[in-house]
């Protein structure tokens, strides 16, 4: 690990003030500390957000579920209000990594990291959530811009995420057996704005499967989702799953997710 200057601000204002140059925020460390150990990431200044109290917590209203950036996956998974309002979101959090990762990893860290196979991006895009930062609100559809890339500006801090409550939703992940990330994961939601289908693990970033959305808008059934054949040419391909296999998985998992929403 390269050396760094460690800071542990007590307030959001102090955290933002510390964030100049190549400084990095530290949330759970489940991605960042690993990357720093391997010298794949380095930062002259590390800003530990764990003491900034108002970045944590869950609140549920009639319209949405708002979750603070520093809220850990386990807190979302075990939250009765989240499970009552958006069960698919609690399920998704419960399936991230393993219990130790969930006890440490956070929502904000997961989104800022934008791993192409991460789970939370599928919920954020699938539900059409809004990411609130220290300076603006970003629509889910505009947030993930590429492989490990987001619309966040240097030093921009994710404060919370507002997930609109859908009529129904579900997430199905085809897990990588060792890392437990998604080889492919599909989030299906019936929202006020229509059916949304978000796919993670299959391309360099999370995306909406618009062909499946159209099919499910005509008929919200597992068979309708399964019948859609997606092109494989821009799907990811690696030793774990080829592009054609991933394309097929998207339709299969979308259909299973539809069944699970019932």
């Amino acid at each position: 690990m390269y050396t760094f200057d460690y800071q542990r601000p007590a307030t959001r204002a102090q955290a933002i003030a510390a964030a100049g140059g190549d400084a990095k925020y530290l949330a759970g460390g489940q991605s960042l500390v690993q990357a720093m150990k391997l010298r794949l990431a380095a930062a002259p200044v590390l800003i530990d957000l764990s003491r900034v109290a108002d970045l944590r917590g869950i609140s549920v209203s009639a319209a949405d579920v708002t979750i603070g950036a520093m809220t850990r996956h386990a807190e979302v998974a075990h939250s009765a209000p989240v499970r009552a309002a958006i069960p698919g979101l609690a399920d998704l959090a419960e399936g991230i990594g393993d219990q130790m990762v969930r006890n440490q990893g956070t929502l904000g860290g997961s989104l800022a990291n934008a791993d192409p196979a991460a789970c939370y991006p599928a919920a954020v895009v699938g539900l059409g959530a809004t990411i609130r930062t220290d300076r603006r609100s970003i629509a889910a559809d505009d947030f993930f811009t590429g492989l490990y890339e987001t619309a966040l500006e240097p030093g921009e801090l994710i404060v919370s995420v507002a997930f609109p409550r859908p009529a129904r939703c579900a997430y199905i992940k085809f897990k990588h057996p060792a890392s437990r990330f998604a080889i492919v994961g599909v989030f299906v939601a019936q929202t006020a704005g229509g059916v949304r289908v978000a796919v993670t693990g299959a391309k360099s970033r999370v995306f909406r499967a618009t062909a499946i959305e159209a099919a499910l808008t005509r008929e919200f059934s597992a068979a309708a989702a399964a019948a859609v054949e997606l092109p494989a040419d821009d799907m990811a391909s690696d030793m774990h799953a080829g592009a054609a296999y991933r394309a097929a998985l998207v339709s299969v998992l979308a259909s299973r997710a539809v069944t699970k929403t019932a």
């Binding site: 460690y6 386990a74 130790m100 990762v101 006890n103 440490q104």
Partner: peptide, 25 residues
């Protein structure tokens, strides 16, 4: 590398992988 769990300890009652966090955390 955060895969095996051999390093699991409890921090304020939460099981975490102690190889994957800084002591300062």
């Amino acid at each position: 590398t955060a895969q095996c769990g051999a390093c699991t300890v409890h921090v304020d009652g939460r099981a975490v992988k102690s190889c994957s966090i800084l002591a300062l955390q």
